[in-house]
Nucleic acid binder design. Structure first.
Lengths: 205, 205
DNA sequence: GCTTTTACCGACCACTCGGTTTGTAACTAT
DNA sequence: ATAGTTACAAACCGAGTGGTCGGTAAAAGC
């Protein structure tokens, strides 16, 4: 049983380092040997635990990327407050983290989507699943907000979710270079502007 | 002199095919040989005309990508009409083209930005320059719209430009898979919503 | 105590990569 | 006609690539 523990410890180490390097250099630009070198492990160790580089990556997606999206983008918007506040704060924090990350290479999920788009259906399926989960949760937060009178009832929540996802992916892409802090500030103030336009109009009492 | 013509014809053919394959498979996943095979040319031919794969790509950026961004995203928004109309129509058309493109792999510029982000400074500089040109033109269109009374004078045009660029890059990234037409429709209606919020409020006469 | 399983090593394979070198046919300038 | 230049072909190089395989030491199961 603690045999299994050792196995899992090694596999975990491989996945952590794997994700790090894949994120930094891209999937195709990171060789299995690169990962192994960092861990002082051999090819034999890798192919003892995993069938292929691709299978290895898919395990990383399911073990790490899903969780990161959950903790960074989904859990923070659960709740019954005003969706505008929830989502704005969530984005603000996600961008702030990126600004202060010395080794930021963009939004993990969209980077890989970009790399595999139209080139690797199997991996794309897994990545799109994560995107879908995010979208569904955004929609449900917005709809809850509609019921609670925060969001205008004429608003198309699916549309708003797509728009929010798009803008987030975009800003994270261009934030990598240049002056991320200025970009973040400008983006956030326009995001608030957008939210104002879909919030329920407060008729003067 | 017509010697030079032959030279330029060959180089042009290489760049056209090069861009095609780089766009389809990514820069690092396209070998020089892949391009040469398509043209029935040899390595010798390639390295006779270009110093390296990287130099070759930079020439492609300057000869083709700049022009594509101009014709697709900059020229259509030049004019003195309402920026909301100009930009909305421009995005609409750009997305429509993508929807009907059987071989769409996303937004050329942002795909490469994503691939080179934090990995190749030299190429990133050229790509960021294009992005900057686009941004500057968006800002100037918006400011012109302010002067002409179309855009609310409290709006931060730089911020709006960043927001528009972000959302466009994002929607093009997620539009590749799934149902591009539905995504386009949803995106466009939210974009109009956003523009409504930054247009000058028409006080009832 | 003996056997089996596990976790890992490291040499090796066939292949691909960007880039170099050498050779040559055709054209140009004199 | 001849000498030089241009535009390309083709073989080649060394460094990597994902993946295989035979071996081994230690632990687990009986």
């Amino acid at each position: 049983m603690d045999k299994n523990l050792k196995r899992m410890a090694t596999m975990h180490r491989m996945q952590v380092t794997g994700l790090e390097l894949f994120y930094k250099n891209g999937y195709y630009n990171t060789s299995v040997d690169d990962i192994l070198k960092e861990l002082s492990l051999s090819k034999g160790a890798f192919y003892h635990h995993y069938e292929s580089k691709e299978d290895f990556f898919i395990e990383i997606i399911q073990n790490f990327m899903v969780r990161k999206v959950y903790s960074m983008l989904i859990e923070p918007i659960e709740g019954h407050e005003n969706p505008a506040t929830l989502i704005t704060n969530c984005f603000e924090e996600a961008l702030e983290t990126a600004v202060h990350n010395e080794m930021d290479f963009g939004f993990l999920l969209s980077n890989f989507i970009c790399e595999f788009n139209g080139r690797n259906q199997r991996i794309m399926k897994h990545l799109n699943d994560i995107l879908k989960i995010w979208e569904v949760n955004l929609v449900s937060t917005l709809q809850k907000g509609k019921l609670n009178g925060y969001i205008d009832r004429h608003i198309d929540c699916e549309g708003a979710a797509v728009f929010l996802i798009s803008s987030f992916i975009g800003i994270r892409t261009i934030m990598v270079e240049a002056s991320p802090n200025a970009l973040k500030y400008r983006f956030m103030s326009q995001l608030r502007q957008y939210f104002k336009s879909i919030e329920t109009k407060q008729t003067v009492v």
